[in-house]
Design a protein around this nucleic acid. Structure first.
Lengths: 206, 206
DNA sequence: GTCTATAGGCAGATAGAC
DNA sequence: GTCTATCTGCCTATAGAC
C-alpha cells in the first residue's frame, strides 16, 4: 500500500528530533515550545496539536530515546563478541552521544529530577534499570567465563559503570573535551578486564 | 568595632542559603527569585537589592560553594593521614552533600552549562580544576610512597575520580538511595589502593 | 533594607478559523 | 494539521516611597 512511506519524517517525529537535541544540550527546563517551533518554522499551537503538553512531549522523548538505546543493546548482543568487547561497545554508545555535544538524556533528566512530572520520573528510572539489567547480565557471564574480574556483585558493578559513564559525560561537556571522557571511561572499564588472556580491542575507539 | 556580630546570619547570606538549596535540588533553571523570596518572607524586589540579577546571585553561589569546598580540602590536608584515607575523606564530602538530598552544585551546573552566563561557566570550570589539582597532588604523593597504585597519570586519575563521584551522585538521587552512591564510590576508590599494606579505614563511613 | 507597584517579556496552553 | 489570536500566569528586573 504505501500512501507516502517515510521519505520525510513526519512532523511529530521531527518535533521530537529538535526537542531531543534541545533537551540533551540545555535541559528540560532550558527549552520551550517557542524554541522548537521557531526551528521548525511552525507555531506553538501546532506543536500542541502533536503533543498536548510539555510533559507529554517529555514522556515521548524518553520513550523514544530508551527504545533506541535498547535496540542498540540488542545489536551488541547480536554480535559474537566477548564480555570486555561488549563493555567497550557499551561505552562507545555514550561516546557517540557526547561527540554530538549532548548529555545522555536521562543523565540530564536525573539532574532535574525533582522538577519533573511523575510519568517522566518513572521513565528515567526505567532507563537506568534497563541499562543496569543489561550490564548485570554481561558482567555475570563475563565473570563466569573468566573474561572479567571484579569485586562485589554484578549488579553493584553495573551501577558503578552507569554512574561512572554518566559522570564522565557530565564533566567532559563543560570542557568540550572528548578525551576527558575517553580517559575516564577507559580507566573505569580496564579495571574489570581479567589480566590473563590476550586482549583484543581498546576500550574506546576514535 | 563589633556593632552586631554574626548572631543571626545577615540577609545576604540567608538568601544564598535558600538559593543554594534550591539550586542543588532543582537546578539553576528550576528555581526563581519568587521561590527564594517566599521562603524568606521577603519580596522579590528585596532580593534584587542584595543580588542585582540572577546571574550575579549565581556567581556568588558558586564562589561561596567553592570556597567552602576548598576549606574542607585544607582541613583534610591538615590531618596526618595517608593518601587512601584522604581519598576516603574526599568521597565523604560528596556523600554528605548527597545525604542532604542535594546534587553537587557544580555537577548540577555542568548539566545546565550551555544555558549559563559566561561568568558562571568560568566558575564551574574553576571548581573542577581546583578539585582535580588537589586530587592530583594526593595521587602523586600516594603513588610515590606506595600507598596508591593506578595506571595512567595522576591528572587523568583525578579526572576519573571527580567524574565518577559526580556521576554516582547524579544517578543515586533519582533513586533517593545513599547506598547506590556508597557502592559506586567505594568500588571506584578501592581500585586505587595498593594491596600490600594493612588498610585502616573504610572508603566511606556511615 | 524593605516595601508596593509595575513594566515588559516569555512560559505553557486553548479556542476556533481555515 | 496548521494557523491567528488570545489567555493566564510567571519570569527577571526597575522605579520610587518609606
Amino acid at each position: 500500500m504505501a500512501s507516502r512511506g517515510q521519505r520525510a519524517a513526519d512532523t511529530a517525529s521531527r518535533v521530537l528530533d529538535v526537542a531531543e537535541r534541545l533537551l540533551q544540550t540545555r535541559g528540560y527546563n532550558g527549552f520551550s515550545y517557542a524554541d522548537v517551533a521557531a526551528e521548525l518554522k511552525l507555531t506553538k499551537a501546532s506543536l500542541h496539536y502533536h503533543y498536548a503538553s510539555k510533559a507529554t512531549m517529555g514522556e515521548a522523548l524518553i520513550t523514544r530515546y530508551a527504545s533506541r538505546f535498547a535496540a542498540a543493546l540488542e545489536q551488541i548482543d547480536a554480535r559474537p563478541i566477548d564480555a570486555p568487547t561488549k563493555l567497550a561497545a557499551y561505552a562507545r554508545l555514550y561516546a557517540e552521544v557526547l561527540r554530538g555535544k549532548r548529555m545522555c538524556m536521562c543523565g540530564m533528566l536525573a539532574a532535574e529530577y525533582r522538577t519533573l512530572p511523575k510519568p517522566m520520573r518513572d521513565a528515567v528510572i526505567g532507563f537506568f534499570d534497563d541499562n543496569e539489567a543489561w550490564l548485570t547480565n554481561v558482567l555475570t557471564r563475563g565473570r563466569e567465563d573468566g573474561m572479567l574480574r571484579f569485586a562485589g556483585s554484578p549488579a553493584e558493578t553495573a551501577q558503578m559503570i552507569v554512574s561512572g559513564l554518566e559522570g564522565a559525560m557530565l564533566v567532559a561537556r563543560p570542557y568540550d573535551d572528548m578525551s576527558r571522557f575517553q580517559a575516564a571511561a577507559g580507566r573505569l572499564l580496564e579495571n574489570l578486564v581479567a589480566p590473563d588472556p590476550r586482549r583484543v580491542g581498546r576500550i574506546t575507539s576514535n
